[in-house]
Amino acid sequence: MTATELTQLLADGLILGSMYGLIAVGYTMVYGILQIINFAHGEIYMLGGFGALFVYAWVPGLRAIPLWAALPVLLVVAVAVSVAAATGAERFAYRPLRGAPRLAPLISAIGLSLFLQQVVFNFFTLPGSSMGVTAPVPFPQFETAPLDLAGVQVSVAGLLTLALAAFGMVALTWFVRRTRTGRAMQATAQDPATARLMGIDTDRIIVIAFAIGAALAAVACVTQGLRLGTVSYNMGFITGLKGFTAAVLGGIGNIQGAMAGGVVLGLAESLASGALPHIDALAMFSGSVWKDVWAFVILIVVLLIRPQGLFGERVADRA
């Protein structure tokens, strides 16, 4: 394998991984505050893509202008749809179960996942077709040819993914560390009862955490649609699982860790499908069929060595 081929795999992995990272942030923020895993987050992600596709398909003006000009509208609608779904889920599926045994919100999340998938499956409609989407549906594509960086090909959608992920992380880090609401969010994660004694409306902070996670997931789904050219009603399942894996890899509860975990996972997947065929002993475990297996092998190995994840704090530091 040449150096260019390896660089290509690393570039692809970085792009895929930053998309996983955007999803992982949502799992980690909600976990950091409520200690629950929002297993419906994969569907929150999926809804963003369908929201964007819906306006693109039904608003004729958007298809008349270049995709890059329509993109801000697609992103805003995607974010709005995902945020609405996530805050609705918080209000009606999770909040009533606060204080219930841990298993209750988990079951609620699984029910919600199936419900949201079925809503799209049965009711999402494109112009000129009948109601419902059973198969993957086409997503708008950039027509520009991939950029050639010294032999490494990077698509416009790939670059956009990197740019949006970087922007999202910088903005989020600034928000959490530097703003009044961000500090209130940290306080709520560290000690919710005492946060209330400071005058912090912790219910509101929880809604904001769900909303931020949903917004980043919506952006992730739009970039995924742009890169792969399709979205499907069940795309949130495996990708959501990857995002969750990335969050655990990075140390659940740690926002920067979630992005780092996503990148590690993306690189691992890319190398597993592209580099392993060149290693004789492992060639039979390579290719895209095996890449998910390798993703979870990495997860298991990391957790065996560092149960708190790559960048996780020990529980005692958070108490």
Binding site: R183, A184, Q186, A187, M198
Partner: peptide, 15 residues
């Protein structure tokens, strides 16, 4: 709040 600084803790008192 253990991971916030002393001053950030004080400012939260004036939230």
């Amino acid at each position: 709040f253990p991971s916030l600084t002393v001053e950030e803790n004080l400012f939260l008192g004036a939230y």
